[in-house]
């Protein structure tokens, strides 16, 4: 029995470690913001962190399949722009359009990666310019309008319900389901040993396209979330999400080589990064030093993590 506990712990090292780190960070946060654990504060914070959490889930999805997406920020901005521009015609229609746009750009990324025979890092870097340009066509300057009622409900709770929490719960459930489908297993198989997956008759290209498309859905949701949070659209707001989502995924223990990682950990890691950013804001340091600090903390965290979980070398 203790054996089993040890195994479970080892299997969830990332989640456990991140959880511990989160507790420390929350304690520090509490020091600056005594209101932290009130419902109002929790709602507004989760509203603020949701876009990064969703973006990180998108990034983790492609990384699990052995890829990476440098166009994530552009796709996020595209979804945000589409949603903000069309929100007046009805929120549901706008959301569907935004998701469709994000999923199809994701799938397009997947097609490029699967068929170009180039490293995903290069393909998606090029794609980031492409989608960035498209976004500017859709929304040349910041604007569009999201119904005020929705913005309020999202940021301040709806009948006492923190909507962002609900979204995270639903999305995690969606992921859990995907994981147990053949596609989900193929995703891990392709990421873990691409040649082996191909030799076993798995349609590696289809799986990659599917992974990027699914990531597009997550990123699209993130874009919608950001539009609702801020009440409008901005074509240039996506850029930081690319690197932050990668940072969160790596911090969560998603392997750069694919095949290893858990979505739960990604959610926690994204939350951590969000909290850290806020915390640095509280310290009253100049924004420049905040950036430096954020970078330094990330490097240390990732180095510690890598060191702690390193078993195999050569």
């Amino acid at each position: 029995m203790p054996d089993r506990v040890a195994t479970t712990l080892r299997g969830n090292l990332d989640v456990v470690g991140l959880g511990a780190l989160l507790v420390v960070l929350l304690a520090a946060y509490r020091h600056y913001d005594s209101e932290l654990f009130t419902p109002a504060s929790i709602t507004i914070l989760s509203a603020q962190f949701l876009p990064l959490i969703l973006a990180a889930m998108g990034q983790s999805t492609v990384m699990l399949a052995g890829g990476i997406d440098l166009s994530l920020g552009s796709v996020l901005a595209l979804a945000m722009a589409v949603f903000a521009v069309r929100a007046e015609d009805g929120v549901a229609v706008a959301a569907v359009l935004a998701l469709a746009a994000a999923a199809s750009t994701g799938a397009a990324n997947g097609v490029l990666v699967a068929y170009a025979g180039l490293p995903p890092i290069i393909v998606t870097l090029a794609a980031s310019f492409l989608w960035g340009g498209v976004t500017l066509v859709v929304l040349p300057k910041p604007g569009g309008s999201v119904p005020a009622g929705l913005v309020d409900a999202y940021n301040n709770g709806w009948n006492g319900l923190a909507l962002p929490f609900v979204v995270i719960g639903l999305v995690l459930l969606l992921w859990k389901t995907v994981r147990t489908t053949r596609f989900g297993l193929s995703l891990y198989a392709v990421g873990g040993n691409e040649h082996g997956a191909y030799a076993s008759g798995i349609g590696v290209r289809k799986v990659k396209i599917g992974a990027y498309a699914l990531a597009g859905v997550f990123v699209g949701l993130a874009g919608i979330g950001l539009a609702v949070q801020t009440g409008s659209g901005d074509a240039t707001i996506g850029a930081p999400y690319t690197l932050n989502s990668i940072a969160a995924s790596v911090l969560a223990g998603v392997s750069f080589f694919g095949g290893i990682g858990q979505m739960r950990a990604t959610v926690l890691a994204a939350l951590l990064i969000g909290l850290l950013t806020n915390l640095l804001l509280f310290t009253g340091l100049s924004p420049f030093y905040q950036l430096i600090m954020q970078g330094a903390v990330l490097i240390v965290a990732i180095a510690v993590k890598t060191f702690a979980t390193r078993e195999r070398t050569d």
Partner: peptide, 24 residues
């Protein structure tokens, strides 16, 4: 051609996992 990160059972059926209502 095994995926070292998946279970033995998942590897035995690699690419042709038996699914029930879409779920493995």
């Amino acid at each position: 051609s095994l995926n070292p990160h998946q279970t033995v059972a998942e590897n035995v059926f690699l690419g042709q996992w038996p699914a029930r209502r879409g779920l493995v």
